[in-house]
Computed example of a mutant assay.
Amino acid sequence: MDKKRFMVVSGFLGAGKTTTMVALTEYINSTGKHAAIIANDLGANYIIDAEYSDRQNVEVTPIGGDCICYIPDTLIERIERLNREPKDLVMSDIPGCGIGALDHVYGNLDKNHKDEFTLAPFLVVTDPERLRMIMPEQADIHLPEELKFLLDAQLKEADCIVLNKIDLMSDEEVDRYVKFLKEACPDIPVFPISAKEKIGLEQVADYVLTAESRVNITDIGYGGPEFVAAEKSMSWFNRNVFITAKDGKAFDGNELVDDLIDEIRNGLIANKRNVPHLKTFAVGKENDYGKFSLIGVDYDIIHDQELKEETEKLRLVVNARAVCESDLLLDIVDDAFDAVAEKYNVKIKVFFSECFGMMDEGRH
């Protein structure tokens, strides 16, 4: 029986895991091989990463409601499903704090399904801005001290590291970040890439298609006090809405989404909170769609793709991972939607909404 090659893609919120998986899958498929994606999220429905990936002409299947770390049977079923047409690689991200999958996923597959799966190198995606928190400058980017633990733990799990977003860096900066990563993680290959600009993908693809994971499970403090402190600091928000113009006149969906994100940003700033990653996905006329992101209250909105036309109707999905209590986060986002509804004279119908902290009573 041919083994199925599987890979976990880990990394910090906003580092570009989805963009990296999509770009890597597109590159592998362009070479005549075949790759596919599992999009994993703690939210129960409306996973932006799955919908966005699917629109990039790559094969993707979602797993929502829990982390793949804790639902091994579901994960195996999805890998099997994607391999009905044999794949050279299936990859999945992990949500939440982004650590633990080396033990819970790779450890389980290596121990109990060794004859079925080849485990590709455990890949960790980093981005230069977040790395500054743990580099010599110890940059303060207005995220809690507890989140530094996550970056350190993610790097400890890595079989290989991808330094993403090099299109935003000079050659000297790339060299400095690569040097830091190689010193922090000896004997671990580091690949500088730009997933957005499709730079450096060949070396990553060659490595993950041929090398295998060490399954080097070490104590990273998973479940310990630092892990609990990091999880306690974060909340998840997911909402799917349908927006219609009350007067029937077309509105600029790009401006509406920008204003919504800015209203959420301002609410978080006023309450001294932050959002390591906020994603929106908007669908307008005839599958015209846009994707907009924010990786912190101090950063500009990232327009991964803008809507091309004004519209009278807009479907909008919002996924946010915030350093904020869930009740407060819900109030901030509700106020933002109210402000946008008034400014643009639109009706907002909510089809699905959830907001929860990792440690909220009743979540499990």
Rank of each mutant, 00 (worst) to 15 (best):
M1E: 14
M1K: 15
K4P: 07
R5H: 11
V8I: 13
V8Q: 03
V9F: 00
S10Y: 01
T18S: 10
M21H: 02
V22Y: 01
T31V: 08
H34T: 03
I38W: 01
E51D: 14
E51R: 10
E51I: 09
Q56M: 14
Q56K: 15
N57L: 15
E59P: 04
D66P: 04
C69W: 02
I71Y: 02
D73W: 06
V90I: 13
V90S: 00
P95Y: 06
C97Y: 06
G98R: 00
A101Q: 05
L102A: 03
H104P: 08
V105R: 00
L109G: 01
K111P: 09
N112F: 10
N112L: 15
E116H: 03
F117D: 02
T118H: 05
L123I: 05
E129P: 09
R130T: 07
I134N: 03
I141R: 08
I141M: 09
H142T: 09
H142Q: 12
E145F: 13
K148N: 14
L150C: 11
A153G: 06
Q154Y: 05
L155M: 11
D159M: 04
C160M: 14
I161G: 01
V162W: 00
L163E: 01
K165M: 09
K165C: 08
D167T: 13
M169L: 15
M169W: 05
D171A: 11
V174G: 01
K182N: 14
D187L: 07
D187W: 04
P189F: 03
I193D: 00
I199M: 09
G200Q: 00
Y207E: 00
Y207K: 00
V208M: 01
V208T: 02
A211T: 07
V215A: 09
I217T: 06
G221V: 07
G223W: 02
P225S: 13
P225N: 11
A230R: 03
S233T: 06
F237A: 00
N238T: 11
F251M: 04
N254F: 07
E255T: 13
D259L: 15
D259F: 10
E263R: 11
N266Y: 13
A270F: 10
P276C: 10
H277T: 06
L278D: 01
V283Y: 02
G284C: 09
G284H: 07
E286C: 11
Y289V: 04
G290C: 13
I295W: 01
Y299H: 13
D300C: 08
D304Y: 03
E306R: 11
L307T: 01
E310S: 08
N319Y: 06
A320N: 04
C324P: 03
E325I: 05
E325R: 10
D327Q: 13
L329K: 05
D331T: 11
I332V: 14
A336P: 03
A339Y: 05
A341E: 15
V350M: 12
V350D: 11
F351T: 04
S353Q: 15
C355V: 07
C355N: 10
F356E: 05
M359E: 12
